[in-house]
Design a protein around this nucleic acid. Sequence first.
DNA 1: ATGAAAGCGCTAACAG
DNA 2: CTGTTAGCGCTTTCAT
Lengths: 335, 335
Amino acid sequence: MDEQKKNATIYDVAAAVGVSLATVSRVVNGSDSVRPATRDKVLAAIEELGYQPNAVARGLASKKTTTVGVVMPDITNLFYSELTRGIDDIARMYRYDVLLTNTDDEEEQAVTAIKNLAQKQVDGIIFMGTKLSDKVLLAIKATGVPVVLAGSVAENGALPSVNIDYEAAFEKVTSLFLDKKHEKVALTLGSNDRTIDQKFRLAGYQKALQQAKIAYDDALVFTGAKNYADGQKLADEILAQKADAVVVYDDEVALGILNAAQDAGKKVPDDLEIISSNNTTYTLVARPELSSIDQPKYDIGAVAMRMLTKLMNKEELGDDQITLPYTLVERASTK
Amino acid sequence: MDEQKKNATIYDVAAAVGVSLATVSRVVNGSDSVRPATRDKVLAAIEELGYQPNAVARGLASKKTTTVGVVMPDITNLFYSELTRGIDDIARMYRYDVLLTNTDDEEEQAVTAIKNLAQKQVDGIIFMGTKLSDKVLLAIKATGVPVVLAGSVAENGALPSVNIDYEAAFEKVTSLFLDKKHEKVALTLGSNDRTIDQKFRLAGYQKALQQAKIAYDDALVFTGAKNYADGQKLADEILAQKADAVVVYDDEVALGILNAAQDAGKKVPDDLEIISSNNTTYTLVARPELSSIDQPKYDIGAVAMRMLTKLMNKEELGDDQITLPYTLVERASTK
DNA sequence: ATGAAAGCGCTAACAG
DNA sequence: CTGTTAGCGCTTTCAT
């Protein structure tokens, strides 16, 4: 019946102890200048009344919400969810809560999400996604809060970010195939209008080609495949180009290509070598297991979040473009 | 230099138009009773000043934050992330933001998360996870806000929930194997102390056994495997029991068993039939593809969130224990 | 070390 | 239809 316990306020505990609410506020916030005796009394009353500070009121008064916004393409995408797990763990460590939004990597949804987070007065934002258009950039700047990109890059280092060196990684794996005298190395990318694909992954691929003195042939570059089914469809096209190796930017897509190629009677890696890019669990469940570029996904998220805490604290950052090491994990889909 | 545009407040726009802040508040909140002419002027000023309502202040004044808390075991688990995707989409449709917390399915973390969400004054909570202990239940009750379970059940319908009929589903797939005259049908579960595993999945399995007049043998029931690697390890034990079919509660685990069994020279489905339970993408990437109980994961999340909106609105709910239909997807891992 | 008082930016009666 | 007036629950100077 007494559902009405009405969430005790700071006033209630002040009254119970016979001090001012300022004092209660001080002990709640761990201020030094409170006599131990009073502190104890206050603490007791808090316990007694089951007082829980109202974070909204706090946020309004202090202009800090201890909440960060996380904007990501899709929570069901293993790559992003692992990044986010890193973000979440570090956020929690620093006592921030996470307001999450899926954007499907769409510009409009991203802009809406960012504006909304600004209204909610988040203290900072982590942004993930490949479409970092001017509109998105503008929306980000307009929020006035610090933003860090995780697994995503802005041109000219316009925004702090944490990544691996995609260009070097793609150059390396491409060279790996080229060194084996493969003439036709295919490449699959997410899109042809994204910085990360064009300026980094494709660039690395081309660099390797150039070094091996092999002409670039855009019939060998495939864009648009985003998931397993897309990958399966793509296999035909890749095979039709008589590619003898393929570098794939995503694990699910790589798995689709792998399975479809095998279902079509091709031998992997004998007829077609495949290397993927995110080293998620998918690479392990494949038969043969997929070789992959391993990005430290969890760490990218964790480091990005750590960086954000510094920014929110107005601490000085040394470099705001962090590059984490990647490794090449060779399994059975390559020789 | 004029970084100081200082986020216009409702006062600024009121002053700009020459009306009271109440009027501005009314147009912002779409109240009917505002003369169109004034409304337009206010809207113009809002546009002009780039006014964005401060959700924190709003939350404090109205005691509604338009934010819901989502408590889940692990964002990188495909089953939960798909549920969450459904939750998120519906939440957004109803203009709620989502505060997300991972608990690793640990009781303590869940309790902490729930308390924290209460402090943040969320309007409602969606809870996912298999460990719905008394402590968690208590913490939930203490928040005073509506809570809905998604893909999780409380005993005696203590909390509103959205699920499939796990017992029926497990009975059905077990019977499927039993009907083929398999004598040794193994079962793998997440744990032996969870309601969902014990009271539903195991119960369904036992029911099928009973109906087929086959004695229950607990050597055929395996608990504790949670991921792909665990599944791989488990394969040996299952094979050692000479099981000729196995029902697995999780896709990753099923895939581990499948791959390890095949790597050990067994033929699937000839030597061992396998059926899994969540029908995530993992079932498709497997070779042979895994047969699976298909739960409408996205829908479970979506329906749970929809239910929560009703609860937050104090609308009447017909039934608060919703059971969504499951289907059996037969693929190549069963005959 | 503690209290008084002034907001934070907005909503919500209550008048008119 | 619009304005006035209180707060929402807390932080934060500024005094004392």
